[in-house]
């Protein structure tokens, strides 16, 4: 398709952009701005008061327990990002280079499991991990352990659920960037006498970095917003930030405080996102520079 240079006031541009822009202004930018404004208000006897004060923010920054929960959430996000990439990279590499004949079938299977209701899948893990569930039964009958493992309702079960629900994102982003690598570059490296490992480290890995970063950011940011896994698999014993936010709204009915905690989480996500965008841009520039040299 040809790309047409147009003024932003062109009829075609306006016709295609205005509906989307209106929707996003009304129901995306609007709510974000309102949330920011709400953090400067107060709640008195379950009624929102437009008073413009900093009380909520001073509460957020003075209460140690909030930051424990936020810290736990961020470390959970780092851990799940690391594990998801560790799991997804070799799989994406295998899908792009080894299993070519079955790639489309495997893709359908992955997409189906991805689109299946997350609540149901998480509940499925409860049935597997239960003290009297299939997992423990298998472990005992394979002779791997005599004692039933108490895995369910621990932070590790939460981590398992998060990794399970999110590992598909980096799988796809890494797969797409691996598919875009020019096969000739790899063959050229072999011709120049590089070993498989050298070729992977010097050619394939750097060229797949955009997909790697994109997948990592997606997992990190989406982990910041999970409370299904910590509630259903973690048993709610060590709550993450979303659970705290949910409680602030539902149990304590404190909108300004909930809004402030939401802003803190979104700020963390934005910083990570900005760093990742910088990294991708720098990789692109480096690669362009290398290409110019060659």
């Amino acid at each position: 398709m040809r790309v047409l240079d147009r003024s932003w006031q062109d009829r075609g541009v306006l016709l295609n952009s205005l509906p989307l822009l209106t929707l996003l202004t009304l129901f995306f930018i609007g709510p974000i701005l309102l949330t920011l404004l709400l953090t400067f208000q107060e709640m008195r006897s379950y009624q929102l008061q437009w008073v413009w004060s900093l009380r909520v923010w001073s509460e957020v920054f003075s209460k140690y327990s909030y930051w424990v929960v936020i810290g736990r959430t961020v470390s959970m996000a780092f851990l799940s990002t690391f594990l998801c990439i560790l799991i997804a990279y070799p799989a994406a590499y295998a899908l792009a280079t080894r299993l070519k004949n079955y790639a489309s079938h495997i893709q359908i299977l992955i997409i189906f499991s991805f689109l299946t209701d997350a609540v149901l899948k998480t509940f499925g893990w409860v049935l597997v991990l239960d003290r009297n569930g299939i997992g423990n039964w298998l472990l005992q009958h394979l002779g791997l352990g005599d004692e039933a493992l108490n895995f369910l309702f621990t932070p590790r079960a939460t981590l398992l659920g998060v990794v399970y629900n999110l590992s598909v994102y980096p799988l796809f982003t890494i797969y797409l960037s691996l598919k875009r690598i020019d096969r000739d570059l790899i063959l050229a490296a072999y011709d120049a006498g590089a070993s498989k490992w050298q070729t992977f480290r010097e050619v394939t890995l750097p060229l797949s970095r955009p997909g790697l970063y994109a997948g990592a950011v997606l997992v990190f940011v989406l982990t910041l917003g999970t409370f299904l896994e910590s509630k259903v698999l973690g048993g709610g014993k060590s709550p993450l930030a979303p659970e705290l936010i949910r409680q602030t709204f539902e149990t304590r009915v404190n909108w300004p405080l909930g809004a402030a905690l939401t802003v803190v989480l979104v700020a963390i996500a934005t910083i990570v996102l900005a760093v990742a965008v910088r990294l991708v841009q720098r990789t692109r520039q480096e690669q362009a520079a290398k290409g110019a040299e060659a």
Partner: peptide, 10 residues
């Protein structure tokens, strides 16, 4: 890229 729960809350 927005955590869905937070989008929902907003």
């Amino acid at each position: 890229l927005f955590p869905q729960l937070l989008l929902g809350v907003m």
